[in-house]
Nucleic acid binder design. Structure first.
Lengths: 337, 337
DNA sequence: TAAATTTGCGCAATCGTTCCCGACAACGTT
DNA sequence: AACGTTGTCGGGAACGATTGCGCAAATTTA
């Protein structure tokens, strides 16, 4: 059905051998400028493009990188993907995006698929369910370059890039404290994710600074990062049925923020009168809410760019890389009041 | 660095030829059950996976489909992609997502890239800038299967799937009329997109039903579908500087809806007191706005599923397909009041 | 003019896999 | 005993592109 032209077609049409045609296109010196001109003109005319699959087989690289995120319908990730694509395309790499929907099984399948399809490297942000990263270690040990961003694996030694989650969480919590709130709950993703751990640390540090004890019943983990709305609803329900109800919630993620607001609206709890909300989000719709809702914004686009730069450097490195960077970027507290 | 095992490795280890090993794994009859058992056991042990690139080269198919959307950070598209992935993975196809960001140039580059990477088929939703679909016709004529969804090309004969845009637009406009508004403007994407044309028709029909003349100055096209905020801002500014200001706007898209609300907030125009808004959107954050904001919701996930089913049927068809479907799905008017 | 060098191009191998063919046993049939 | 049949398996071509090697012709040098 769909048959692109090959070197052989050109060779036959011009009465040359495939090697000569290849050399003409590849611009080697072992070729007369005359034949080169003829071949180039003809190739241009029929719009010849070398078959990338044949090239991949020969050169054992695909010029493509695999991306693993929890979902693209998340402002942080869609912005990060923007940065990834920008750099990748510029360097001649193709980007294959896969979604885990926070599922460990899906993560394993996707990673396996990407690896077997022969991507040259991997940009990974772990799923909320993932606590065992053995499926990644295996590939990493066998030499597949990978770079983690946002949700990093602590026991795999490679480049990592993340936002200053602790500082961001600290800033957001301090802001709630400064606005007079004292009973601040924390709604977050699964407890083993790097971002959860760091954001919890920032939250704790802020409370401690104000001499407020950290209450375990104020901290609610959603094992699937709020992918299922019932999870978020259950967490909020438990918070609101405490005898000492919180008067603010620090929310640790994009999806959770929206989920949290949805549940509060459903429960007829007014924001920010009854409960003040602040949290990590890269969404711009927050601007539209009547009630002010401050947020911590991560430099998603930049993180995507940097991660991709690092990955391509790994891929194209002639020698095994043994020194790895762990870059941390500052967050920005967007105050809406 | 990263060297997976090959047929040759197995053959050498077992003292067999590659053909025999291949046959054992392929489960042909021309093989003794004994050798088959040995080979299968060994392949299992070392976790052998055939090289998909070599297979692609040989069989001239990649078991992957390319997707072209304007951007993943759009609730309609991210939901549609969910449907696409569900069907594709189930059938053993991989999905490669590319974004045009509503740019014609980017669309051409992405399509070219997907085609040259040898995807088996294409799922296409045109960019707002695209009026000339020659780059797609070329590939289609050469036999590359493609299915259009949402934003379809009218002069390419293949399967198409879209929402009942005219009915949806009609419903939304009628709802604004029923709530007492009479000066209803229309904010929409570029004028050549199929969805723009159909939604405009629905808007016109509703006004006509109420005996209201359609005023050209009430209809504002954003050539990039609101991808640039200035575009939306300019349109709203023009609408609000009319002597006969509109008291409602029917907005024709996801991004435009958010953009429109952002501009209105910036201009300190109250919604829905001064201006009532209704439009196409698959976003769930609309639920969170204090002011009710009805919307037309497209069955995005189902559309993604159906489009993928159709495409795979095209790809796997033994004979050239000449009869094409043009499926239209109903929209849902979500009333928030 | 003959030898030495350069130039231009084709042959064939390679990447990993499949598959058509041919080889060659071990049979059964005549 | 000669021949056909069947069951297994290996050899080698093919998919499309690149590239080292060798060979012939053209050019330069002695």
């Amino acid at each position: 059905m769909f048959e692109p032209t090959t070197l052989k077609d050109i060779a036959k049409a011009l009465g040359l051998s495939t090697s000569t045609v290849s050399r003409a296109l590849r611009d080697t010196h072992e070729i007369s400028s005359e034949t080169k001109k003829i071949v180039l003109a003809y190739a241009e005319k029929i719009n010849y493009k070398p078959n990338p699959i044949a090239l991949s087989l020969k050169e054992r690289r695909t010029k493509s990188i695999g991306v693993l995120v929890s979902e693209v319908a998340n402002h942080y990730f869609s912005q990060a993907i923007g940065g990834i694509e920008a750099i990748a395309y510029d360097r001649g790499y193709h980007v294959i995006i896969t979604q885990t929907h926070e599922s460990y099984e899906r993560e394993k399948i996707n990673i396996q698929h990407l690896a077997s399809r022969g991507v040259d490297g991997l940009l990974v942000s772990l799923s909320a369910e993932t606590s065992d990263t053995n499926h990644l270690s295996l590939l990493h040990d066998r030499g597949l370059p990978m770079v983690f961003f946002d949700r990093v694996a602590k026991d795999i030694e490679t480049h990592k890039i993340s936002a200053n989650n602790e500082q961001g969480a600290y800033d957001a919590t301090i802001q709630l404290l400064e606005s007079g709130r004292r009973k601040i709950a924390h709604l977050t993703s699964s407890d083993h994710l790097s971002i959860s751990i760091e954001r919890l640390a920032g939250y704790t540090a802020a409370l401690t600074k104000y001499g407020i004890p950290v209450q375990p019943e104020y901290i609610k983990h959603c094992p699937h990062g709020g992918m299922f709305q019932e999870e978020t609803e259950q967490a909020i329900r438990e918070l609101m049925s405490l005898t000492d109800k919180p008067d603010a919630i620090f929310v640790a993620g994009d999806r959770l923020s929206i989920g949290c607001l949805t549940v509060l609206k459903k429960f007829n709890i007014s924001v920010p009168e009854e409960i003040s909300i602040s949290g990590f989000s890269n969404s711009d719709v927050l601007d539209l809410f009547k009630s002010p809702l401050s947020s911590v914004r991560q430099p998603a686009y930049e993180m995507g760019c940097m991660a991709t730069e690092m990955l391509i450097k790994l891929i194209e490195s002639k020698y095994p890389v043994t020194e790895f960077e762990n870059r941390v970027l500052d967050t920005e507290l967007v105050i809406r009041a």
